[in-house]
Design a protein around this nucleic acid. Structure first.
Lengths: 206, 206, 206, 206
DNA sequence: GGCTAAACGAGACGGTACGTCTGGTCTTCAA
DNA sequence: TTGAAGACCAGACGTACCGTCTCGTTTAGCC
């Protein structure tokens, strides 16, 4: 049974103006210069209207993220049958975007938001495409045998995205070829570690 | 040629009080509640004394990081000859620490600091031990043939740390066994892709 | 009595609830803490219902004043034939009431309301009783010759009330005997100012 | 021995700017539209600088009052030997000022301030001149015998001022001649009450 | 030992933003 | 059609910090 109440209903126009102002200001100004007052001003809205519906600026950013207001990601990772080639093709433009001022500062802002608001972190990799797109391609690779069965597909996506975040946070610029090499190493084929003759599998002693 | 001038010299007591107050307050209050005024108050110091020597609260945190005021890391990753066992032994207590309230919020705070201050990001993985300790052990593994020659050792360390950061930011709690499995997959032996039919696949797990 | 016709009607209950909440809140909280929202809440009424019928909180207070919702004044000033004695008997309890917290703050509130709303000022002295009761007794005194003919009776009432207001606004407490003495001086008999022999009246030279 | 403290000293420029903005805004906008933010804006000052030194907007107005920032009162009531004539000469321009928009709203504002801040009420009549100037003239009248000995001089000044306040609060406009008549009645000679039959009643007007 | 100058503690200053509260208007729904 | 409920824009409240700028004191070389 739905709760019935008299009175006006939430304004869709205000919601839209607030979220779109939030997304624009986060990109333009960055997380630490993003303020509720600034959003209200830019959206032509009273502050109370924001506080009525969102608990913090982090919650606003999380909702923008879910709405896909930051990235226009490639709809899917291609599938030529060669996993690494497909990943490189998909990752390369992403890495170059993250080497632009806008891209860098957007990622910085989103990570900063994630440190304050659990909801942002929870959806970060998905908004980025890692959860859906990348994991789907990895699953396909498992199906064709390019990756071994039992591969922790979702975790792998997170690891690649985590490495990416760390690269952006810790360096001035992503070294694109080096990053692609890393992905190649992480996901590519690899011999059983130099001691193929050793009877016991070295990775699982007991 | 040193510049000679009269007058008092930088107070070591003030520097120590400031850095130790910074480290304590970051752990206790978190990055966003860490304020210059609060540090000055806690350190019994004038604000100007802070601004004279550090450019921002990020710079303060970066210096604390370099001084190793946050972590007491294991001096080295053990070397039993089995890479994955050594990594697990080293990582397990770290992961459990990051599942405590203190550990979680400390990592959140440091990541937040890194989004604002390049210096923090630059030294984050090193302070954590990933650069020195982990990479050293990986290098040893390359030398003994546990890892193939040409393994991007430093990048691998960053990838593991990046995955860790992402795990903390995006989930309520690190799933320790799953994370150890991921590391096993990332660094462990793996059959050459694209030849799933190869009869004598050396490390086919199932 | 049940309402037995379709369609709502101007609610007398709402009017009563609003005015009684206004009076109670003005006494309890004071003028500056009296808010339309608070009245609506206390009366169980929508804000618009108040704005529909009254222009401001001042108008509400003015109507409460006219309804006599603040004072329960002595019905009349006694008439023993001695004006000053009667005035003292009537004024004394009033002055003591104005020395209580409630009385003080009520007068403060009403004066504050009067500064914002002409209607409050216009009826303040009347609601207090000065216009009707006091002036009636003064008129009687003129009739008996206790006061000279031509005495500005209404103005005198206002002057006494004005002195009272000023006393409350400017001091922590009314000095009751001193105030009664003042009234005695203002209304009592007085010789023609030290020069009884002077033929021309000193007060009106031309 | 004065209290010594290091650090900067209170800014006289800020104090002056704040008080002068307060006085101007109170006159221009009125008490209820006077805001701390508006004062800070007009004075080119941070809000905290106001809150540091004054507890409320009432305290600001009280200090303006003490500084004589509202009235430019006649330095003294004239003394021609005829009390009522002197009072009329002094009061007439004051009454006309209080019949202007500015004068009316200034008095309204000051009375409103007095209802919230004891300090304003305490100095209101003095700033107006009633305490010093009027009382001085009344004292002189007692000395020359124009007023009887024992006349409550200070209280009389307050009564006149109170009547004035009440007149402004309760009417649209002061009736200047009627008010002067009232003052004439309050302070002028008057026959002894209770002896209306006395034949040689010295100052029987009609 | 006096002089000079920097570093220190303290904190006032002009500001920005916070999160809360109220004002007055406008919208929806129930009776 | 009235009235309750309450969302809306607007903006003031008092607080917390920002980064800069005095102050008066303390201390370290140099004459």
């Amino acid at each position: 049974m739905t709760e019935h109440r008299s009175g006006p209903v939430r304004s869709a126009a205000a919601r839209e103006a607030i979220l779109s102002a939030t997304a624009r200001l986060l990109v333009d100004e960055g997380w630490d210069r993003l303020t509720i007052e600034g959003i209200a001003r830019a959206a032509g809205v009273g502050k109370q209207t924001i506080y009525r519906w969102w608990a913090s600026k982090g919650a606003l950013v999380a909702e923008c993220l879910l709405d896909g207001r930051f990235f226009a990601v490639e709809p899917a990772v291609g599938d030529t049958g060669e996993l690494l080639r497909d990943l490189r093709d998909w990752l390369t433009p992403v890495l170059h975007f993250l080497n632009t001022t806008t891209g860098r500062s957007l990622l910085h802002s989103l990570v900063a938001a994630a440190t304050e608001e659990a909801g942002v972190g929870a959806h970060l990799s998905d908004a980025f495409g890692a959860d859906r797109l990348l994991a789907d391609r990895l699953r396909a690779a498992v199906a064709t045998g390019e990756l071994p069965p039992g591969t922790p597909v979702d975790q792998l996506g997170h690891a690649v995205f985590g490495a990416l975040i760390f690269e952006v946070l810790s360096k001035d610029e992503i070294d694109v070829p080096a990053f692609l090499d890393l992905v190649g190493f992480l996901l590519g084929p690899r011999p059983a570690a130099g001691e193929p003759e050793t009877p016991g599998s070295p990775a699982e002693p007991a």
